[in-house]
Simulated scan of single mutants.
Amino acid sequence: MIRMHYSFDFAQQMHFPSNPLQPGPMYFLTPRKCGLFGVSCEGLQKQVNFLIDEGMSSGKGSNEVISYMHHFTHFGVGETDVDLHCDNCTGQNKNNFMLWCGAWRVAHKLHSTLNIHFLVAGHTKFAPDCGFGLIKQAYKRTRVVENSSPESRLNIPQLVGLEDGTVFVNMFYWQAHLNPYFRKLPQIKSYQHFSFDAKRLGVVLARTHSDAEPVSFQLLCDPDVLPPVDCFPAQLAPGLATDRQTYLYSKIRPFCSDEAQDITCPAPQSTTQNGTQKRMMV
C-alpha cells in the first residue's frame, strides 16, 4: 500500500519570445502564449509542469484539468491511496465532474481511496507556487524548466504538444464520458473535503471541514452500471486561428532569433476542404 499527496494548479501564462529588457516596439504586442499546469508531489519533492502552447490549449475547464491529472499517472509511483489538494475555482476544480472522476477512478480500482481537499477560502498559495516561481525566475534567463532547479531537480517539464500540432498529452471530453452515469451533488460549494473508497462504489463522503461529520451521497445513477474505463471521446487540439497566425508572423517574428522564427512564428496556414494544410501568402 502506497499513499501519496499531490497538489495541482494553473500558473499565470508565460509568453515567448521573452526579453527581460522588453524592447519598446514589443511592449504593446502579445507574443505567443504558453500555459502552465503544475502537479506537485511534496513527498518526493518533485513537480511535473505541463507546458501548454496556445495552439494546444482548449481552455482551463474541468475537461483539461482531468486530462492533465489522468496523464500525470505516468509520473506516479503506483499509489493505492491518494490525497489531492487544489483551490476552490468552480470552473476548474470544485465541480461535479471532478467528483465524478474521483468516483470513477476508485470504482475501477485505479485507487483504493481518493480524497480531494480544497483550500480554505482566502488562501491561494500552496506547493505548486514554489515550482512556478522557480520556473519564472529561470525563464527570464534560460527559458528552460529543467534549469530552474538544477540542484534539487524539483521541476520536471511535460510538453502537451508542439507548435506544429504534434500532441503528447491527449485531451478528452470527460464531461461527456461521465455525465450519463452520474448525478450532481447538491450544494457542492458548501463542502471542502470529499472522500471516495473502492469498497463503496459511487459514494462520496462530503465534509464542510476536516472535523465535520461526513454527508454520504450516491453519485452513480445506477451503482451496478459504471462508466467505461477507456474509450474516452477525444478533444482535438484547436490550433491557432488564421488571424492569430498572421499576427504572430507579422508582428512577433521580427523579435525571434533566426533559429526560432519558423518554430514560434511560421508563415500562416489555412485548412483546405480535404483537411490538408497549405501555406498562405503574407
Rank of each mutant, 00 (worst) to 15 (best):
V48F: 01
G76C: 11
V48G: 00
G76S: 14
S57L: 07
V203I: 14
G133A: 09
T272L: 11
G239W: 13
D197N: 13
F72A: 04
L119P: 02
H177Q: 00
L162P: 01
W174A: 01
V65T: 09
D222L: 06
A121N: 11
T73S: 15
H209D: 08
G35R: 07
G38P: 02
E64Y: 05
D262E: 15
F72V: 11
Y191W: 08
Q47V: 00
K109F: 12
H5Y: 13
I2W: 08
G133N: 09
N179V: 01
I135Q: 03
I135F: 11
I2F: 03
Q13S: 14
S62T: 02
S67N: 03
S250Y: 04
F196E: 02
T242C: 05
L178Q: 07
A103D: 00
A138R: 06
S57T: 10
Q245N: 02
I116H: 02
Y249T: 12
H117E: 01
Q235D: 10
W174S: 11
Y68I: 05
G275H: 07
Q137Y: 04
H123Q: 06
S152G: 11
L220M: 12
C89T: 14
S40W: 06
Y27W: 04
K136W: 08
H193D: 10
F75W: 14
V215K: 14
Y181K: 05
D243M: 15
H177D: 00
R32M: 12
L29T: 05
P157H: 10
D87Q: 09
R141L: 15
G78S: 15
A11I: 11
S58E: 04
M98I: 02
E54R: 02
Q45A: 11
C101G: 01
L44I: 00
P254M: 10
S7V: 00
P23H: 14
L220W: 07
V229Q: 09
L220Y: 08
R253L: 12
C89W: 04
F97R: 00
Q45I: 01
Q47D: 05
V225H: 06
D197Q: 00
V120H: 13
V225K: 06
D222G: 10
Q245W: 09
N155E: 12
N95I: 01
Y139M: 08
L51Y: 08
